[in-house]
Simulated scan of single mutants.
Amino acid sequence: MEEIAAQKPDLILGSFVADRSDFDRVAPIATTIGEIGDAQVDALTADLVVMLPNGGTREDLMRLPGFAALPSVGSGGMAVEDYPTVVGFNTPSSASLRYSLDRITPQLEAIGG
């Protein structure tokens, strides 16, 4: 938990939040969503959202009530990515960050103006 807290996240999304005890341990650090469902969509208010839908698709996400109205969707800052891209951000090295940043360049440009 100290490693997560040290990153000072604004929002924690993750399939690792497997049960209530995991949720209770990370929730004091930042807004935490274990699985995205209808009730949690409105928490995704960042300009840039990088997401791995774990077997789902962008179209699946767009069917969630309110998802299409998110700021990141409207501004072009929603990046629905593959596993290697997300892992590149979660376990950073200079090569993995370069790879992952290259993959979301369109979204970065869209929100950067």
Rank of each mutant, 00 (worst) to 15 (best):
residue 1 M to I: 14
residue 1 M to C: 10
residue 2 E to C: 05
residue 2 E to K: 09
residue 2 E to R: 11
residue 3 E to Y: 06
residue 4 I to K: 06
residue 4 I to E: 10
residue 5 A to N: 03
residue 8 K to E: 08
residue 8 K to S: 14
residue 10 D to R: 09
residue 10 D to H: 14
residue 13 L to D: 03
residue 13 L to K: 01
residue 13 L to S: 06
residue 13 L to Y: 02
residue 15 S to T: 05
residue 15 S to H: 03
residue 16 F to P: 03
residue 16 F to K: 07
residue 16 F to C: 13
residue 16 F to D: 14
residue 21 S to W: 13
residue 22 D to E: 07
residue 22 D to I: 10
residue 22 D to W: 09
residue 23 F to P: 14
residue 23 F to E: 04
residue 24 D to Q: 07
residue 25 R to P: 08
residue 25 R to K: 13
residue 25 R to S: 15
residue 27 A to L: 08
residue 32 T to Y: 06
residue 32 T to E: 09
residue 32 T to S: 10
residue 32 T to G: 06
residue 34 G to N: 02
residue 35 E to H: 09
residue 35 E to S: 15
residue 36 I to K: 08
residue 38 D to V: 04
residue 38 D to I: 02
residue 38 D to G: 11
residue 39 A to Q: 13
residue 39 A to C: 08
residue 39 A to W: 09
residue 40 Q to M: 04
residue 41 V to H: 02
residue 42 D to Q: 08
residue 45 T to G: 11
residue 45 T to Q: 07
residue 45 T to N: 04
residue 45 T to E: 02
residue 45 T to P: 02
residue 46 A to H: 12
residue 51 M to N: 07
residue 53 P to Q: 15
residue 56 G to W: 10
residue 57 T to W: 13
residue 58 R to Y: 00
residue 59 E to M: 10
residue 63 R to F: 09
residue 64 L to H: 02
residue 65 P to A: 10
residue 66 G to W: 04
residue 67 F to C: 01
residue 70 L to C: 03
residue 72 S to E: 04
residue 74 G to N: 06
residue 74 G to A: 03
residue 75 S to K: 15
residue 76 G to F: 07
residue 76 G to M: 09
residue 77 G to C: 03
residue 78 M to P: 01
residue 79 A to W: 05
residue 80 V to C: 08
residue 80 V to D: 06
residue 80 V to R: 08
residue 80 V to L: 12
residue 82 D to H: 11
residue 83 Y to F: 15
residue 83 Y to Q: 15
residue 84 P to S: 03
residue 84 P to V: 00
residue 85 T to S: 11
residue 87 V to Y: 14
residue 91 T to S: 11
residue 91 T to W: 10
residue 92 P to R: 04
residue 93 S to R: 09
residue 94 S to H: 13
residue 94 S to E: 12
residue 95 A to S: 08
residue 95 A to L: 09
residue 96 S to L: 00
residue 97 L to R: 02
residue 99 Y to E: 09
residue 99 Y to R: 01
residue 104 I to H: 05
residue 105 T to K: 15
residue 106 P to G: 07
residue 106 P to L: 12
residue 107 Q to I: 09
residue 108 L to E: 01
residue 109 E to P: 00
residue 110 A to M: 07
residue 110 A to L: 05
residue 111 I to K: 07
residue 113 G to I: 04
